[in-house]
Design a protein around this nucleic acid. Structure first.
Lengths: 260, 260
DNA sequence: CGACACCTTGATAGTGCTCAATCGGCGTGG
DNA sequence: CCACGCCGATTGAGCACTATCAAGGTGTCG
């Protein structure tokens, strides 16, 4: 049975403030902070639709404040019943679960525009922990108020439902990946999926995109070990499929990648 | 790369009518059909709450008809946009996805009381196929009507949301299982989880419960091969943990099982 | 400069897969 | 009524994929 010693990452306390690893200060992009909802670049990517001016105003009135979290900060633990909800504006986080003997599974990465822990709209306890991957900035809402806002109007409730359906489709894909696909396929699909997400949010450049994942994160997301992820990534680089180094992902052969 | 020849099961046409495998007619329970919603034994287990008489009447008015499907009948394919929704009354089904080269992942088993494909409340295409495992009986609703009914009242919409949250928690657990746990653990947890579900629905007896799964189904649900499932099941039997034979599951040592 | 995180590489081991054969049960058709 | 076909379970032998263990290298930060 695999049993992994708790890494340093798991020992971090709530007030950990160190920065993300491998980027030199010059290459580390600075954290952007949320502004007005009405011209938010993410406004048509969220659970609530703020493309109409009155809705944008309503959401902005609902927003309690903005906040930031340092990289590696644990945002919530499994079983918490937070009274506030966070919506990511900039930076990355991830949702994960841990077994009793310390093995970690990353369930999904949370990107700008995503509500951290969507099911909290309909349950009062989280079923997984969340951690900031990079420094992140978020908009903060009262859970009760946001829930009432969304369920106060059936158009909004349906849109939230659509977000649920989308997330459910994504996790179904993940189950297929974890259950049936090889290491090579899993990693290829994870990176390809993340690149697509970033493109949709306008966070990718033509030469590739910033991907602040360590091999350990990829390993925990795909159910592999970091060592094996490293080897597979080398294979991919050698066969000119893609390359991932220094937090930068370049997809060399998008066609072949899609075919996997 | 594993590549599995399409088994006979995948070749079945829509109108397949043969019965489920290994039970002799005497042991095969007969299929029960739905009656009045007001005294439905499943009434507090569904997406809509019919414990109040008026709600029960509303749902019953909404129900178009009852229907049955033969075992092994494919109920819908990935990508379908059905105009009707089914709620299982008796029997088992399962949701699954298939890769291009024929590997199958069972996403979940659908038990009495479950709406087949919950996300269809919020999306118009399915992202997975569904197949009857045994013969099943269902209540049939118009999708549009049921959606309007649920979103027409925010209490009902919230309850449907809670169903979403519950399913999301379940699939998160599954991701942890598939990504991080050994074959032994996965099988133990799957069977233990199914037994708990059946107990909650009053479908378990003290000596165990009926489990109409072949080793192939368990394999596809856990991401293993049927051969390896067989070996692991033998180990479990030998160590007096549980036994599964002839469609009957007996949990010999519930305590030790929970500890896994 | 040292500590630490992260990546890389090598050697070795093990879990679970593949291929193949056998056997019993059930359904079908002569 | 019996033969045959087919599915599902079981077992064995061999191997592939991935994990484990260990060591060394690089870059960043204090």
């Amino acid at each position: 049975m695999r049993q992994r010693e708790r890494g340093w990452e798991n020992r971090l306390a709530d007030n950990e403030t160190s920065e993300a690893g491998s980027l030199s200060p010059s290459r580390r992009p600075e954290l952007r902070l949320p502004g007005r909802c009405s011209n938010c670049p993410l406004r048509n990517l969220t659970v609530y639709d703020t493309s109409r001016a009155e809705d944008a105003a309503a959401v902005e009135a609902l927003r309690r404040r903005c906040a930031t979290f340092a990289a590696r900060r644990i945002i919530c633990y499994e079983g918490d019943a937070p009274s506030e909800l966070y919506q990511v504006f900039d930076g990355w986080a991830f949702r994960y679960k841990v077994t009793r003997d310390g093995r970690r599974q990353i369930l999904s990465f949370v990107l700008p525009g995503d509500l951290i822990d969507l099911p909290l709209l309909n349950a009062d306890r989280t079923t997984h922990a969340v951690k900031a991957l990079t420094a992140i900035s978020v908009c903060v809402f009262s859970r009760a108020e946001l829930v009432d806002f969304i369920y106060g109007d059936d158009r909004r409730a349906r849109r939230a439902g659509a977000a649920f359906a989308a997330q459910s489709a994504a996790t179904d894909e993940q189950l297929l990946d974890l259950g049936q696909r090889s290491a090579f396929e899993r990693i290829a699909r994870l990176l390809s999926h993340l690149a697509a997400q970033l493109r949709r949010r306008g966070l990718a450049e033509t030469g590739g995109c910033r991907l602040p994942l360590t091999q350990m994160h990829i390993a925990d997301a795909t159910g592999l070990t970091a060592v094996h992820v490293g080897r597979t990534l080398r294979e991919m680089r050698k066969s000119d499929l893609l390359s991932l180094a220094q937090g930068w992902l370049t997809i060399t052969d998008p066609k072949r990648l899609e075919a996997i």
